[in-house]
């Protein structure tokens, strides 16, 4: 199963990974359309932590024993047999248990449509996740575990 790994020493803090992730998860999937029409309502599953000159991007680790999965009240958070932790928006009620138990703090409330949690899904429908593909300095890489 592929995992995305961040390289702190090459992250510039440009946050383009956030831009491309939000675009990929938007309705229109077009970067200009997404930002112009859905501004203020965009959600990126990856986000950049910043402290002075140190920056790096973090997203769902798809933990082997994911606390969000066993803490989910509705079963909306589940693990595929490939080991990817996915989120079923339809089932989610926005109880925020997952946000509470995620030790990495990578799940975010999506307060736009239905107050449901939002997180990385490893861009399963793409060959290379959007963040990895578009990082200008190759600070995000895929490793196969």
């Amino acid at each position: 199963m592929k995992k995305i790994v961040a390289k702190e020493e090459y992250c510039m803090g440009c946050r383009l990974c956030e831009v491309y992730c939000a675009t990929k998860n938007s309705k229109s999937k077009d970067i200009i359309k997404t930002f112009k029409s859905e501004a203020g309502k965009l959600l990126s599953a990856i986000f950049v932590e910043e402290k002075e000159h140190i920056t790096f991007a973090i997203q769902c680790r798809h933990c082997e024993d994911a606390p969000c999965v066993y803490s989910c009240l509705t079963g909306a958070m589940y693990k595929t047999d490939k080991g990817v932790v996915l989120h079923n928006k339809e089932k989610c009620v926005g109880c925020w248990m997952c946000i509470m138990v995620c030790p990495f703090g990578v799940i975010k409330p999506d307060l736009n449509i239905k107050k449901i949690a939002s997180k990385c899904d490893l861009c399963l429908d793409k060959e290379v996740p959007a963040c990895v593909e578009n990082c200008p300095n190759e600070a995000l890489v895929i490793i196969n575990k």
Partner: peptide
């Protein structure tokens, strides 16, 4: 966030779930 934790904590904690 993780950047506030000292580097050795970060490394120890997150390496478990492959955050290099």
């Amino acid at each position: 966030g993780f950047l506030i934790l000292p580097k050795d904590f970060r490394k120890h904690l997150v390496l478990k779930e492959y955050l290099e």
